[in-house]
Design a protein around this nucleic acid. Structure first.
Lengths: 341, 341
DNA sequence: CTGTTAGCGCATTCAG
DNA sequence: CTGAATGCGCTAACAG
């Protein structure tokens, strides 16, 4: 059996209050008593029971994190920021993976509530109103990180999608491109963040006096890429596009594969730009020009915001949204047409 | 303030024991009393405080997981298995990232001990004897998952590295290859798991009457790949190797990139095989033939083993090692020389 | 079947 | 500066 505060008190020949005072440095203790207590702690290898402590202080130092899938690289990168910053403030992370099931997320919220977490961070792709509602009901502060939607009902941290798409498009024009196609997932069209990206692209095109042109994909995999190629082969071969700006890295890479398989070369016959900044984008050849999302920072900012709200005892329903800046990574998948001609 | 068991008891006009009995279904309760209690729970939206419950039952239902870096894809895949299976048994995951610092790992162990975790899973690349020693001292059961070392002092789950390398080598010979080079990281040479891989390769070569040939890499990145190419360009151009079996996927891919940059084609001029089964291996073209490690299963088996030891109150120091089988994924990076000639 | 009671390990009054 | 006493919310005897 592990030793308790009582054992320490007995050994040091003081009361448990004194021991408590020493451990927490909460009130003055005579040097002599302190010495004896320290010694007893050492000898007994005493470690305070945080469960008991939580019960009385009503502070669990626990943050619940509900993610869609921890195996997802985006999620784990964000979690990295959450964990590291949380730890700086003595908070521990309670982790759960919902695999995209809204009911399961609600279940986790209940579970975490019973475990007395002080706040919850949601890193999910789905839009779960019921979850937000429950959290509000439970009076648990939360912060949402969502790649697809802007959440109105809770503090959210995401990237500045519009500026990102605008800047990338602008960069492409700087590189001499005029026929810039934007490849978007059809399923993403109703997602707020994708709408912002489209708006950014559209604005930049118009600001440069160019016409936006959209290509629609059914997914990001090889099949979807092949479909796009088939549908647009005519245009592609006729150089109707000099560059394709894809709304996701993976899609860009699969499209590049398809191009290669069809005897074209990147970037000579077609340039490519992606979105995300996945590790893939760096390892693939040619390296993919892309928008790098600051995953770690997103997590870090989210937990900072959460801890702030916990301090303020504010279960806030303000629609505050924190927009993080992104970086355009310029690599070899985009040809510089200025030099070329 | 959240409602407590007392509030429920008062409202249902019973004692707190009765409420406790209803929630835990631990002892018979009259239908009438049960109904009233259920009703009060409903109305008050009562959720038992797990902290208080843990204190008295001495059961936290918490598993601590110490990882080297949650952002690492291998780690997060394993964690997926741990989390999902753990949850099946009502266990929650307390997560911490050590970033490879042994002292930090020990600190986490202490912290987790104070938080009353029932067991700890270590997913790390380093060999941390002190951590194992502390865990033993704290009497906390643990299971280790390590890609590089076999741990003798604690239950370990890993893959059958020797069989994996043997089978891959054997497969390469089946494809008609005789000049099979094994590319290994120099830094990995002293790691037990790499030794097993080398042994598997060597055994398979000798069983087929072939001579093992080693190439040494300083890393897995582009630079390291270039170095290897420079050092062995002569041999490579003279077809001294028909295939290079690399000890890590990333190295294989960077080597393939270098080959391409030097005007060679894969697999026509040189075949490649990797080890790991990373997502990269599937997206890269040509798709990489590789050894797929069952990440999810590794995590799942590890936590099952841990929970079993917790049940048996066994802080076991038996050197039990669980070896999981691997799968050879046959793809386009290896040419079938039988057809060719 | 039910209520009373005694802790779990600790922080925190409140007297001294 | 220190100790005795109280209670955090709950489970588990125990007696009825």
């Amino acid at each position: 059996m592990a030793s308790t505060i009582k054992d320490v008190a007995k050994m040091a020949d003081v009361s448990i209050s004194t021991v408590s005072r020493v451990i927490n440095d909460s009130k003055p203790v005579s040097p002599e008593a302190r010495r004896r207590v320290m010694h007893a702690i050492e000898v007994l290898d005493y470690k305070p029971n945080e469960v008991a402590r939580s019960l009385v202080t009503k502070k669990s130092n626990l943050i619940g994190v509900i993610v869609s899938d921890i195996g997802n690289s985006y999620v784990s990168q964000v979690l990295r920021g959450v964990e590291e910053i949380g730890r700086m403030y003595q908070y521990d992370i309670l982790l759960s993976s919902s695999y995209g099931d809204p009911e399961v997320e609600v279940k986790f919220a209940k579970l975490f509530s019973r475990k007395q977490v002080e706040g919850i961070i949601i890193i999910s792709e789905i839009l779960n109103q019921k979850l937000l509602y429950k959290l509000d009901e439970f009076k648990i502060p939360c912060v949402v990180i969502n790649r697809f939607y802007n959440i109105e009902e809770a503090p959210t941290v995401t990237i500045n999608n519009k500026a990102a798409a605008y800047n990338m498009t602008d960069y492409l024009t700087e590189m001499g491109h005029k026929d810039i196609g934007y490849v978007v997932l059809r399923n993403d069209m109703d997602r707020t963040n994708e709408k912002y990206k489209i708006k950014g692209y559209r604005d930049a095109m118009e600001a440069n006096g160019l016409t936006p042109k959209f290509l629609y994909a059914e997914g990001t995999d090889e099949e979807a890429a092949k479909d796009i190629f088939r549908q647009h082969e005519e245009e592609i071969r006729n150089k109707k596009y000099s560059v394709l700006f894809c709304s996701q890295d993976l899609l860009a890479i699969n499209l590049m594969n398809v191009m290669r398989d069809n005897g074209m070369t990147v970037p000579d016959d077609m340039s490519f730009a992606g979105f995300g900044g996945s590790s893939l984008s760096e390892i693939y050849r040619p390296k993919l020009t892309t928008v790098k999302e600051p995953y770690y920072d997103i997590g870090a900012v989210a937990i900072r915001k959460l801890l702030k709200n916990i301090d303020n005892k504010k279960v806030d329903n303000d629609d505050e949204m924190i927009l993080l800046p992104v970086e355009i990574i310029k690599r070899q998948s985009v040809m510089d047409l200025n030099k070329e001609k």
